[in-house]
Write a protein that binds this DNA or RNA. Structure first.
Lengths: 211, 211
DNA sequence: AATGCGAAAGTAAGTGCTTACTTACCACAG
DNA sequence: CTGTGGTAAGTAAGCACTTACTTTCGCATT
């Protein structure tokens, strides 16, 4: 019924076919979860037989792991801390928080499969998702709370526990993304551009913790 | 393996048994999702045969619907707006936002099955979950944004779009609950009492939007 | 109080279909 | 003629759900 057949009849290089199966599987897992997706659907979506799927991946679990590995590698290191570090060095409070929120919201709206996958694997208690979360989110908390602490010493921010402020701030934009992806897809409750959302969230937080 | 057999050997009144099956099914759906839970498991958890489950519920979908109906009825109407309305009438800004956050966080930490169920059904795009969300969350947004608007007219709050402030605030405490339930169960990132969390979130928001 | 009985509570043992995964075999480029 | 990419046709287990049957209870009539 919702099986999308992709007629990629030609013979492919092993690595290429592997990536293609992985990609289709990711879309399906993201939409329907692990136990809600069948290997038959994955095969059909990739335009190959089920047997071919099992040629490239030993079993369904390994497929899932490969996706999370790939996602974790592709997403954790590159973007978020380079641009932030220089804004932090310049004590550009608004720049730091705006950029953080804007990057996250944009990333989520462009790749909502990622957030859905994280939720599915968190609910299913798949440990690779937790691994990703632990390493990446921990870094965000460390970076932002360290920045807040240093600005408190400058006398710029009032005396809040920095991690509470980080929880509040990340809550704003993650929940915003979750809302748009899960519950309020047509944005009936609140329609707002990514820029505006990031700006308003940053302004509320900064005014909320300033001295 | 994780089938918990409950030896309720005795014959039960129809309504009672129905509620018991519903309750066990809810725990299982909440932990493992709809497609991740088998009717066999539900039957075993309730200590009856599979056939008995199907005596009480026509099919698996109806079981799921019954749970969401029950949850929606039990949760939507009673608590949140009575205590809030009088605080709102008294223009007790802190009281309004603190109570909102505290009630939500407490409810989530006492009944985390509910949040998990909401997430599962949102991810699986089950429309009864959306129905609940639409009616309940819409009310929260209307109530809080109307309160903010009125306080803006009093000159107490600055000129933010009220719904953005509501998004920011609800984001803080919902994400806080999500964190504690899904990713950071041991609260390694941030360990804080429900009272402290609600207070700090309310303070950040109020300072963040005051004039 | 004992009896008989209809309806409700409950089940063992299936049904046919779907699932994840395998086997045994083919096509063809180097 | 070999190794790699690919498949048709399985298989056994698991799935939601049914059938045909037994047990137990409440209660009206003797």
């Amino acid at each position: 019924m919702d099986i999308i057949l992709e007629s990629t009849n030609t013979r492919m290089a092993g690595e290429e076919r592997r990536r293609q199966i992985l990609h289709k599987a990711m879309q399906l897992f993201s939409n329907k979860g692990f136990s809600g997706t069948t290997t038959k659907e994955i095969a059909a979506a990739a335009g190959v037989s089920e047997a071919t799927v099992f040629k490239h991946f030993a079993n369904k679990d390994e497929l899932y792991s490969a996706i999370l590995d790939h996602k974790a590698c592709a997403r954790s290191l590159p973007s978020p801390f380079e641009a932030l570090a220089e804004k932090a060095a310049a004590k550009d409070d608004f720049g730091v928080f705006y950029t953080m929120a804007y990057n996250a919201i944009t990333h989520h709206s462009e790749d909502c499969a990622f957030l859905r996958l994280m939720l599915h694997s968190a609910l299913e208690d798949h440990d690779l998702a937790r691994t990703f979360f632990d390493s990446f989110v921990t870094k965000v908390y460390e970076f932002l709370s360290e920045y807040i602490r240093s600005r408190q010493q400058d006398g710029a921010f009032r005396d809040v526990e920095p991690r509470i402020a980080v929880r509040a701030f990340t809550g704003m934009f993650i929940q915003h993304s979750l809302n748009n992806i899960l519950w309020d897809k047509e944005q009936k409750l609140l329609k707002i551009s990514n820029e505006d959302a990031a700006r308003e969230f940053a302004l509320i937080l900064l005014q909320g913790i300033k001295k």
